[in-house]
Computed example of a mutant assay.
Amino acid sequence: MAQIFTASADTRLRAAVLIAGLAVLAGGLFLGGYAESGYMTMVGWVRDQPVPFSHEHHVGGLGIDCRYCHTGVETSAQAGLPPTHVCMNCHSQIWAGAPMLEPVRQSLATGRPIPWQRVARVPDYVYFNHAIHIDRGVPCVTCHGRVDRMPLLARARPFQMSWCLDCHRDPAPNLRPPDQVTRMDWSDWDPKAHEAYGQAMVKAHGIEPAKLDDCNVCHR
């Protein structure tokens, strides 16, 4: 009987299967690494702004409360970007003629909003409500990081679904007194007291972690 396959055919087939398997594995590792990379999550990235606003100076140095500029954070889904007149409450008297504040003065004169570039944002298909998180005591630093140490604002968290779900499935560690949500440094809070407080607030607010990972909580 004539031999259909050569003696080396089996070896070549095994080598091809091995190479294909390694290629699939490498592709999976590449995609997984890319999804977690700073390029994809944009963690640490700074966006160019019309005015180089320093949170380090205004929050860390001057102690301005987050809610002074982000007026909607306690009452609506959007925290809101500061309207020009809020900036001019101070800068009509302080650094009134500074060249870097020309876009602010132009905005006030023309009535056109300053085109701030949002740094922290979730995709359009994700519903996020600032007010409910603030009401339950999730502090600003949980999602936005130590803005009081940022000369230029950078994204501090990945805002990926897995990151959000980690909190939804175990919210207690991220709960603080609602009247202190703008506090940046919590290093002096006793871990045991914090754990007890978080568990107590989960019960007090009727938070049900088992329901917080339902798709319709964030995708409506």
Rank of each mutant, 00 (worst) to 15 (best):
P209F: 02
M150L: 09
R14H: 09
Y125M: 03
D10Q: 13
Q160K: 13
R183Q: 11
G32K: 08
Y125I: 11
Q3Y: 05
L18M: 07
S37Q: 03
M40Q: 14
P158Q: 04
Y68E: 13
A9F: 14
I19H: 07
T6A: 13
D166V: 05
Q78S: 15
G32C: 08
I207Y: 00
S92G: 09
V119R: 02
D48K: 11
A96F: 00
F53M: 08
G61V: 09
V202E: 03
H57N: 10
V43Q: 11
H130I: 02
C143V: 06
C66W: 01
V59K: 12
K192P: 00
H168K: 06
W95K: 08
Y39F: 15
H85R: 05
P52Y: 02
V104K: 01
A193E: 14
V59R: 15
H70M: 09
Q93D: 05
I132V: 14
G21E: 04
M161K: 13
R105H: 05
A200N: 07
L13M: 13
G21V: 06
A156F: 09
H194A: 15
L165G: 08
G137Q: 02
Q3R: 13
A131T: 05
M184T: 12
P191K: 06
P178Y: 03
K211I: 04
R47L: 15
G27E: 05
H70D: 06
